[in-house]
């Protein structure tokens, strides 16, 4: 089986680009707080979703709709409507994280395929099989806390398909279980679909240095004139004891392209690319590179290395938890 390339699309144009660049599957969300990339100017109206699905289907690609924030108490109907509308648009599956929403979808939309979002943080075969049993989940997006050998062990113990992140932004905390952003800004991935939101970012020049602040907290400082990194909370510079540095994670992004053969051997069904907030051009380049890589792998050729380096943040990349020493 060829590993499926699952690509992000923040806009209808990005969806078409990804499909034309050879993506097997596209994932996207509605333009509201029901999905974990609820950024201004991003995502799909109901009409755009139906058009996007039709376009993808006409080109032999699938569309997954992410409805992966945790519904707000008293406002669940917004999330229920998103599931119903995804089905009406012809989506091939919905990506869900919330127990209540999974139960709702299993009961009211039994014919709509259900994937478990990374936001559910199901990190072992017992938890994954539990979601399979209780809600008929067919695929799980694995949390970014597992090594390749652990992923292989999971696949040996479950019939639920696994999808893993291979490229793009990297959360160092278990997703769906992090409220660092709401601690500093009041807005979080779980509740609002945003992390370290731009609305709470300020850059300040003082004494020849440029500081980046999030929610008023200074978490980056560079010499004036140097490019200031975006103050994503877990990748900020902090102090503890006498140490100062990137105490949680360096400003790196994930590139596990070199691990593709190992991930295939580990029984992984699908490779996921992060970045619904990325430009159409970026999406096209990444998709083409990964499609070429899986095709090469399938044909028994070597996977070309380093072909994505210039697309990564500052060029610095990591294979994250896939290698045990990252921990």
């Amino acid at each position: 089986m060829v590993m499926e390339i699952v690509c992000p699309a923040g806009t209808p144009a990005a969806l078409r680009t990804a499909v034309q660049a050879g993506a097997h599957t596209i994932y996207c969300g509605f333009a509201d707080e029901t999905n974990a990339r609820n950024f201004p100017g991003l995502n799909f109206s109901r009409e755009e979703m139906a058009e996007g699905v039709a376009f993808a289907h006409a080109h032999g690609a699938k569309v997954l709709v992410a409805i992966n924030t945790f519904p707000r108490a008293g406002a669940e109907t917004l999330w229920h409507a998103a599931v119903a509308d995804a089905e009406a648009a012809g989506a091939d599956a919905v990506i869900l994280a919330d127990l209540g929403l999974l139960a709702h979808a299993a009961r009211h939309h039994p014919g709509l395929r259900r994937h478990l979002s990374v936001q559910a943080a199901a990190a072992n075969a017992d938890a994954i099989n539990f979601y399979g049993r209780e809600f008929g989940v067919r695929r799980v997006v694995l949390p970014r806390v597992l090594s390749v050998s652990e992923i292989a062990a999971i696949n040996a113990e479950t019939g639920v398909e696994t999808e893993v992140f291979v490229f793009g932004g990297l959360c160092v905390m278990a997703e769906g279980r992090c409220s660092l952003s709401s601690w500093a800004t009041g807005e979080s991935p779980n509740m609002n679909g945003v992390c370290s939101p731009a609305s709470h970012v300020k850059y300040r020049e003082e004494g020849g240095a440029l500081s980046s602040t999030l929610g008023g907290f200074t978490i980056n400082r560079v010499a004036a004139g140097k490019p200031a990194p975006y103050p994503t909370l877990c990748k900020g510079v902090f102090r503890a004891g006498t140490a100062e540095g990137h105490l949680f994670e360096d400003p790196v992004s994930l590139d596990a392209a070199a691990l593709m053969p190992a991930l295939r051997d580990a029984g992984v069904t699908a490779l996921k690319i992060e970045g619904r907030q990325r430009s159409r051009a970026y999406v096209g380049q990444v998709v083409r590179a990964f499609r070429a890589a899986v095709d090469a792998l399938e044909a028994g050729r070597e996977v070309p290395s380093g072909l994505l380096t210039r697309l990564t943040e500052g060029g610095a990349t990591t294979t994250g938890a896939y290698k045990k020493t990252w921990r």
Partner: peptide, 15 residues
């Protein structure tokens, strides 16, 4: 102290 996040990585060890 509020439990804000859990990770596969140990930050004490990293430090």
């Amino acid at each position: 102290r509020a439990p804000l996040a859990i990770s596969g990585r140990c930050y004490h060890a990293r430090l």
